[in-house]
Design a protein around this nucleic acid. Sequence first.
DNA 1: CTGGTGAGCCTTGCATGCAAGGTCGTACGC
DNA 2: GCGTACGACCTTGCATGCAAGGCTCACCAG
Lengths: 241, 241
Amino acid sequence: MAPTDLAGPAPTDSSPAPVSAAPVPAAPLPAAERAYRAVKQAILSGESPGGRLLSEAEVGTQLGLSRTPVHEAFLRLQAEGLLDLLPRRGAVVVPVAPGEARDVLEVRRALETAAVRRLAEAAAAEREALDARLAALLADQRSLAAEQDVAAFAQADAAFHVALLEASGNTVALRLYATLADRQQRMTIGSVGRRPEHLATLVDEHRTLAALVLAGDVDGFDDAVTTHLGRTHAVLLGGAL
Amino acid sequence: MAPTDLAGPAPTDSSPAPVSAAPVPAAPLPAAERAYRAVKQAILSGESPGGRLLSEAEVGTQLGLSRTPVHEAFLRLQAEGLLDLLPRRGAVVVPVAPGEARDVLEVRRALETAAVRRLAEAAAAEREALDARLAALLADQRSLAAEQDVAAFAQADAAFHVALLEASGNTVALRLYATLADRQQRMTIGSVGRRPEHLATLVDEHRTLAALVLAGDVDGFDDAVTTHLGRTHAVLLGGAL
DNA sequence: CTGGTGAGCCTTGCATGCAAGGTCGTACGC
DNA sequence: GCGTACGACCTTGCATGCAAGGCTCACCAG
């Protein structure tokens, strides 16, 4: 058994919270949320690979929770397309589909270009405010690229692209975009760190993208971001450039 | 009380399924699924307007279910962005945001154009197969337009656009697109039937779109679909053309 | 009349219990 | 040896019970 390893210590008693010595000062986080994050993390990190059969009781025991919050977590993950709930069988981790990388990249391109299109129609002041924000993010990326910290860079990269969506003000697009980030993380993890020497190239491309946004050049952005997304994927995943 | 009217007869006993005289031969549908559909329908149809506070017990009573399946339904609807769950308060129906129509339309345009772009790169045979399918859908639409059955036409219209996404083979995009349809339905319902005399125009535009897809003219499609989506929204919603 | 305080009611969070459904393994018949 | 049927186990579906948290409203003091 023991398909995954979601919890640390196995709780022998059923007390709700084992006192918790977490440094987080905030509320102890509801059980359902803990279950959700734990299972999602296990899936995205590849710890629970595609095809794995998860059972509520099993996960619940490992996390020291009852089945109820785990069940709810499974439901949420099914809605996100990460889990497939089989009626009376269990929950299987949906395997990454063969062409999923291409699918995600295409949608990201479409959403980002749409965001830039809206920005191009907005007041120049709005674009300049965004540009200032992007400049700050670029500075971070430059140092991360210099340190060749691929994991941190991946996060900074995501922040850059999300900033575009946020600035566009299209909340519907932003929500959809967020689910894509999860999927991409899942595809990327496990091969992170493949090409740290190319991170600087990605930063350069980000600078170019920022300039195109500021200029309101939608077509130029569309071309550039298409290339960029493909390269990002290649660098982080270690595929062909 | 009685904010919504989700159930028909009030079940006095707690038997799981009241024999059910439904003509559907399939399984009696799980309780959680029934709760989900009922609540979603109530939201999308506008029966439960934005801002309304729903309680699990209340809905459960109306549907003859316990709180558990209703709770699960609420969770799913929150994931879809239709419900906002307040920790110990209840669930409020998320109101349609002011710019939501524009947001949805932009994303639809982006996703559809992306689909056509991929189709344009695919084999011509694939486009021809799609074209045949679209032609069949167009025939349906023509008769529905003639009958000025706006509700049925709205469904046929959705089917046309979904067919494009399906044919592209981008399952990620297709999933995202499906959630958009829900939102658009919610914006549309309540004003359906405003401009039945313009349905023929929409059919014509669909024919044009189909031709552009067949020809692989991505830019032409992008332009045409942008106009078309705006007009569709206007016709079904009764706004300015 | 106004401000504050307390209790009660309402809500959900979560654990548990029971029952139904499915799968797999085994034993039996051929 | 092979096919089939039966049984036990494992899974989820859902109802229920208990407890915690928040809001509202009434009551009281000033």
